[in-house]
Simulated scan of single mutants.
Amino acid sequence: MTGRVALWDGTLRHRTGVLGNLFPAALGDTPEAVNALAFSPDGSTLAVAGDSGTLQLWDTATQQPLGGNLPTPGEPIRSLAFSSDGATLYATSDHTPLQRYPLAPSHLITQACTRTGTTLTAAQWHLYIPDAPYHPVCDTRRPH
């Protein structure tokens, strides 16, 4: 496989788009190959894993990435699967135990608030949630 993924309609008769440049390579290097794919249960999100351990989520409607790459141990990911409610992504590789990635927005916000303390400044918001406009979400009246 190459570093590109084609999306097709449910009948597999019409290509609906191509997710291009999934894993950009340095000038002169070979692009990272796609190793594993998984759709969320509702089909709105596609998880794409590369043979160098890169893991990225994509919005299938807009064909745009959802945030940056997810943190991985760095070895080739062999298998991906979403939980039945789409709130968690699981990834496996040859030498790393099952990795669990909670994806529910409420969990991600709680995690960001916990990492930053009891408040989330605009700068911290853009660090953890770079693709969304700033909203004050951490409750400063109670610890996280």
Rank of each mutant, 00 (worst) to 15 (best):
V5K: 01
T2I: 14
F23A: 00
Y101K: 01
G20I: 00
G50M: 05
W8S: 05
R142L: 15
F23W: 08
L89G: 03
S79M: 12
T114C: 01
G117E: 06
D85N: 14
Y128V: 08
T96R: 00
H126L: 12
T54S: 13
R141V: 07
T54A: 14
W8E: 09
P65I: 02
P143A: 09
G86L: 01
P71W: 00
H107L: 09
L103R: 00
E32W: 06
C138N: 06
E75T: 13
I109E: 01
P143N: 04
A87D: 15
E32S: 06
A112I: 13
L7M: 08
V5A: 02
G67N: 08
F23D: 02
L12G: 11
F82A: 00
V18F: 10
G53F: 07
A104C: 09
H144E: 13
Q64M: 14
T62F: 05
S93C: 09
A33M: 11
D131L: 09
P136N: 14
L19K: 02
S40Y: 03
P130F: 11
S93H: 06
T62V: 06
T2H: 13
A81M: 11
T92D: 10
L37R: 09
T110C: 01
A61W: 07
G86I: 02
R4K: 13
L120T: 04
P102E: 12
T11Y: 11
D94Q: 13
S93V: 07
P143G: 06
L27K: 09
L55C: 10
W8M: 09
T11R: 14
Q63D: 07
A6H: 08
C138A: 08
G20W: 06
W125I: 08
P97Y: 01
L80H: 10
N69F: 14
R15Q: 15
A38C: 08
G3T: 10
M1E: 15
S106R: 04
A123S: 12
A132M: 12
P24H: 08
P130N: 08
G50A: 08
L89T: 04
P41F: 09
R13I: 01
G3C: 05
G10S: 11
T88K: 07
F23V: 05
V137Q: 12
T114M: 05
S84G: 05
I77V: 13
G28F: 11
A122H: 09
M1H: 15
R141I: 05
Q99P: 02
G74L: 09
A91H: 00
S40K: 01
N35R: 15
G117Q: 02
G20Y: 07
N35M: 14
A122D: 12
L66S: 11
S106W: 05
L66V: 15
P76C: 11
A47H: 02
A91K: 00
N35G: 15
G17R: 06
R141C: 05
G3M: 03
S40V: 06
S52C: 02
F82Q: 05
L55N: 04
N21V: 08
P143W: 07
L120F: 04
L27M: 09
V18H: 07
Q56A: 12
P102N: 10
S44L: 11
Q111R: 12
G17W: 06
A49N: 04
I129W: 04
M1T: 15
A36K: 05
H126D: 12
T88A: 08
L70S: 06
R142F: 14
